[in-house]
Design a protein around this nucleic acid. Structure first.
Length: 296
DNA sequence: AAGTGAACCTGAAGGC
DNA sequence: TGCCTTCAGGTTCACT
């Protein structure tokens, strides 16, 4: 499910409940997600206070008061939801969002919020491509999961110059380079397709074209701007709800209505005066959606 | 270096 | 109605 805008939306939804909350109990309903939970995972969470909720790339991070960071990845189908109030003895004592099954509620954090209210944060993940781990804050950036992650596209360092530098000499297609988390962090299939359409660049074009050749600087500028804009607009819209992505509040994101090419094969290109048709082809094992008429 | 395909796992959707 | 195939927002690894 989640690319950077969806993870950021989840973070913003969970923050009011989780920041400053105490973890009274961590309930694991199975021994693993994509990977086994770390040894003593539930016990190490119990009694901790969540100091801050953050995001790095597509990872959600909860800094704990003992210097460790609960680090969570949502894979393809992971989601969180918040249930207010005390847990009862009755199984299923809460309302499940449409299309969600309690069979895939794998982790429940029983919290006492900063305001003293009881709340549960439930992690649901049908495909279980997500995972959770504990990483020491002091060495967080050097951790194997984090050390090769690239630049944050909404951070201050990111821009046309850095983009050109990152893609310099790369023979890989733009699509593959943009999906490479070691270069830029947080982009996935949807927002790469959308950013390339906005920048009028072909997903099959060589990444190095942003660093050398005719109009390179202009192309890099267009793409850097397109990436920032599409991510910011998607976050403002609460992310994209394709199948089951819901904000922690239960509301659906609505950016999917603003897709220009993603999942729009056969539709007319929306660029004024273009007249092209959105096509689809497979690249890096993923569907690329694009308009061959205006994306060069 | 860069591309492909497969793997992990479940569910939804479409064809017959 | 059921059965079968295909596809899905991510990541990693083995293999050309």
């Amino acid at each position: 499910m989640p690319e950077l805008p969806e993870v950021e939306t989840v973070r913003r939804g969970l923050q009011p409940v989780m920041q400053g909350a105490g973890i009274e109990r961590a309930e694991l309903r199975r021994p693993d997600l994509r990977f086994p939970f770390p040894a003593g995972f539930a016990e190490r969470l119990t009694g901790r206070t969540i100091v801050a909720l953050g995001r790095r790339a597509k990872y959600l991070t909860a800094d704990l008061d003992d210097g460790w960071v609960l680090t969570m990845h949502l894979g393809m189908s992971g989601s969180f939801r918040v249930i207010a109030g005390e847990a009862t003895e009755t199984p299923g004592d809460f309302h499940l969002p449409r299309g969600k099954s309690a069979a895939h509620d794998h982790v429940v954090l029983h919290l006492r919020t900063a305001a003293g209210e009881a709340a549960r944060v439930v992690y649901n993940d049908p495909r279980r491509f997500g995972f959770m781990s504990l990483i020491e804050r002091a060495t967080f950036d050097a951790h194997p999961l984090m050390r090769d992650i690239g630049v944050e596209p909404l951070g201050n360092r990111f821009g046309a110059d850095l983009l050109a530098e990152l893609f310099k000499g790369k023979a890989a297609p733009l699509k593959a380079a943009l999906l490479d988390q070691r270069l830029i962090a947080g982009l996935g299939n949807i927002y790469v397709c959308e950013a390339l359409w906005r920048a009028e660049l072909s997903p099959a074009a060589k990444a190095a074209m942003l660093a050398e050749g005719p109009g390179a600087a202009d192309k890099a500028e267009r793409l850097a701007r397109a990436i920032r804009e599409v991510l910011q607009e998607a976050i403002a819209a609460g992310g994209s709800s394709l199948r089951d992505h819901v904000q922690a509040s239960g509301e659906l994101g609505y950016f999917q209505h603003r897709f220009k090419v993603y999942d729009r094969e056969g539709e007319a290109c929306q660029r004024p005066g273009c007249g092209g048709v959105v096509e689809r082809f497979t690249q890096s094992g993923r569907s690329s959606f694009w308009c061959a008429t205006c994306q060069k």
